[in-house]
Design a protein around this nucleic acid. Structure first.
Length: 291
DNA sequence: AAAGAATTCAACCGCTCCAAC
DNA sequence: CGTTGGAGCGGTTGAATTCTT
């Protein structure tokens, strides 16, 4: 049994000997880990765990920090732009989650991996094909991605229209003074804020560039307008799109999704069609409307 | 309102890589 | 050159939550 009353079914004899904890982290543990790293820095996870007085493995501490406590972790729904990037990068690199995550500031490999498994693989299942099959990849390339681009573009138009009506509206910002973000989850008893090292976000490895400032205000209910708020920032960045064999400004296909398609996706062949196509759109509409 | 099914996502596991010794 | 320990990665699990009937 752990402190939460849950059985530690996978605990080994050696774990019991050293009284190692498993399972969900408590607020108290989060607080200890956060403050320890704030004053001593990260790395050397096994000794960190020991010195911090945490009855956790170094691995567990590292994972908790990287996936949850790190100040620059971005939480909330995957935006349309991020979905597009994930699809593109996955088509290039496959299940190289950490590599993909490097191109999505604030997102963790675990989050992307979960997104892929829960969302993308679900649609492959609905299409009754494997995510790695040619049929599915073609479907993504020829249907989903162009569709996503259209959605992004349409939403950008809507967002800019509403922005012109209400210019003072802001959907995201970051407080650079204390290194905390609006949707950052810190232990509940952090009310006054843990003591953090000075030096801005560099201390915590925040990538430079506007995209890292695109923090949404909701942890789980990004509105479409909120998601699209990232568009204007992303247009200044370049991303690698394999179909084009090179880097292009995001704006290129935001302003002209068809040019994006025509540049790199010239073999616009639909392998399925008919009911299959209809099912895809229905599924995708549900998917997108969930955002 | 309750029960069961489906989904989500935090956390764990096993493995590989690499540097230090 | 072999061993050891730290770090990181991808796959998997299962509890919690949400949805459906």
């Amino acid at each position: 049994m752990d402190v939460n009353g849950r059985p530690c079914t996978s605990a080994t004899q050696s774990d019991e000997d050293t009284d190692l904890r498993r399972g969900p982290w408590t607020d108290e543990e989060d607080l200890i880990l956060f403050n320890y790293i704030a004053s001593h820095g990260e790395g050397r996870w096994n000794s960190l765990a020991r010195h911090a007085g945490l009855k956790r493995t170094g691995k567990s501490c590292r994972l908790r920090w990287l996936n949850y406590l790190r100040p620059d972790v971005r939480r909330g729904n995957i935006t349309l732009q991020e979905q597009l990037l994930i699809l593109e990068l996955h088509s290039r690199w496959g299940n190289r989650w950490s590599k993909i995550a490097q191109h999505l500031p604030g997102r963790t490999d675990n989050e992307i991996k979960n997104y892929w498994r829960t969302r993308v693989q679900k649609h492959a299942k609905q299409l009754q094909c494997d995510v790695n099959s040619k049929q599915f990849k073609d479907t993504m390339r020829d249907q989903w991605i162009p569709r996503l681009v259209e959605r992004i573009q349409a939403a950008a138009v809507t967002a800019s229209a509403s922005a012109s009506n209400n210019f003072t509206a802001t959907t995201h910002h970051i407080n650079h003074n204390n290194n905390t973000t609006i949707n950052q989850k810190v232990p509940n008893n952090f009310a006054a804020g843990p003591v953090l090292p000075t030096g801005g976000n560099h201390e915590f490895g925040v990538e430079q560039g506007n995209a890292s400032d695109n923090y949404s205000t909701g942890a789980s209910s990004d509105s479409l307008a909120t998601q699209v708020s990232a568009v204007s920032d992303l247009t200044t960045d370049s991303y690698y799109f394999p179909a084009n064999n090179g880097f292009h400004g995001y704006a290129d296909f935001l302003t002209s999704p068809t040019s994006y398609i025509n540049h790199g996706l010239d073999n616009n062949v639909w392998l399925g069609g008919g009911d299959l196509l209809e099912n895809l759109w229905n599924a995708e509409d549900i998917w997108l409307s969930e955002q």
